[in-house]
Amino acid sequence: MTDFTTRRTMMVDTQVRPSDVTKFPIIDAMLTVCREDFVPAMQREAAYMGENLDLGSGRVLLEPRTLAKMLDALAVTNDEMVLDIGCAMGYSAAVIAHMAEAVIAVEEDETMAAEAVEALAAAGADNVVVHVGPLSDGAPQHGPYDVIIIQGGVAEVPDTIKDQLKDGGRIAALFMQGALGEVRIGYKRGTQISWRAAFNAGAPVLAGFERQVAFQL
C-alpha cells in the first residue's frame, strides 16, 4: 500500500519549500490535495515526481515546483475569481480552490474534463466549475477574472484570453522558446499587459497558444 500522505509531505519539503514558496495557503493546499487522485490510474505511482507528468496528446501536469512558484507570484486571495486554463484532470484547480473565492477550470479534452469533475467533487472542491471548450477561448461568460493561470507552455497569449482579465488583474504564463521556457507574470493596466520575468521552467506549448504567423499577401 503506497503511503501517498508521506509522499505529499516529501513533495512539499523537497520541491516546494526549497523553491522559496512559503505562503501558508499554497503549502496547506499542496499538503491537502491528493495529487494521485488527479492523474491517470497508470500514473499514480509517479504523481509526486519532481518533473512534468505526461498526460498524453502533448499535455502534461506541471511539476509541483512550477505550479507552486506561479501561485506564489500571483498571490491569489480568497475574494478573487481565477481562470485556470488547461486544468486537465483538475489538480491545479483543486489547489487554487483552497486560496480563491471561485475557480473556472477550462479543459478541451472531454474525457479529462469529466474526470476532473469527478475528482474535484470527491475532493470537496465545490467552488470550482469545469468548463469544456477550446483552451484558447477561455470562458468569457464567467469573466472577467482577477487572475488567469495557464497550465502549459505558450508561444504567445491570444487576445481572447487577455481580454478576460480584469483591469488590475494578474496572469501567469510559461513562455517557451525552443526547449527553454520562462514563467512571466503579466499585470493589466487599462487594455495593456506588462510582463515581468519570474523564473525558468518548461512544458509543451498548448494548442491554440502557438505563435500566430501574420498573413501577408
Rank of each mutant, 00 (worst) to 15 (best):
99 M>A: 00
101 E>V: 07
102 A>R: 11
103 V>E: 03
103 V>F: 09
103 V>I: 09
103 V>C: 10
104 I>T: 14
107 E>R: 06
107 E>P: 00
108 E>S: 06
108 E>Q: 03
110 E>K: 12
110 E>M: 09
111 T>Y: 06
113 A>G: 13
113 A>I: 12
116 A>P: 00
117 V>T: 13
118 E>T: 12
118 E>W: 11
119 A>I: 01
120 L>I: 12
122 A>Q: 12
124 G>A: 12
125 A>Q: 06
125 A>N: 04
127 N>E: 10
127 N>S: 10
128 V>A: 10
129 V>P: 08
130 V>L: 00
130 V>S: 00
132 V>N: 05
133 G>S: 06
134 P>L: 14
134 P>Y: 13
136 S>E: 15
136 S>A: 15
137 D>M: 10
138 G>P: 01
138 G>E: 03
139 A>E: 09
141 Q>I: 09
141 Q>F: 05
143 G>E: 10
144 P>R: 10
144 P>C: 06
144 P>F: 10
145 Y>P: 02
147 V>Q: 09
147 V>D: 05
152 G>H: 06
153 G>L: 05
154 V>C: 04
155 A>W: 00
156 E>W: 03
158 P>Q: 06
158 P>S: 09
159 D>T: 14
159 D>Y: 02
161 I>W: 01
162 K>H: 12
162 K>R: 13
163 D>A: 15
163 D>C: 01
164 Q>D: 11
164 Q>I: 07
165 L>Q: 08
165 L>K: 04
166 K>C: 04
167 D>F: 09
168 G>Y: 13
170 R>S: 14
171 I>R: 02
171 I>V: 11
172 A>H: 02
174 L>G: 07
175 F>N: 04
176 M>D: 02
177 Q>I: 13
177 Q>M: 14
179 A>P: 04
179 A>Y: 15
179 A>H: 14
181 G>T: 10
181 G>R: 09
182 E>L: 15
182 E>H: 09
182 E>Y: 04
184 R>G: 04
185 I>H: 01
185 I>Y: 01
187 Y>A: 12
187 Y>L: 13
187 Y>V: 14
188 K>A: 07
188 K>R: 13
189 R>S: 15
190 G>C: 12
191 T>Q: 13
191 T>K: 13
192 Q>L: 15
197 A>P: 07
199 F>R: 08
200 N>L: 11
201 A>G: 03
203 A>S: 02
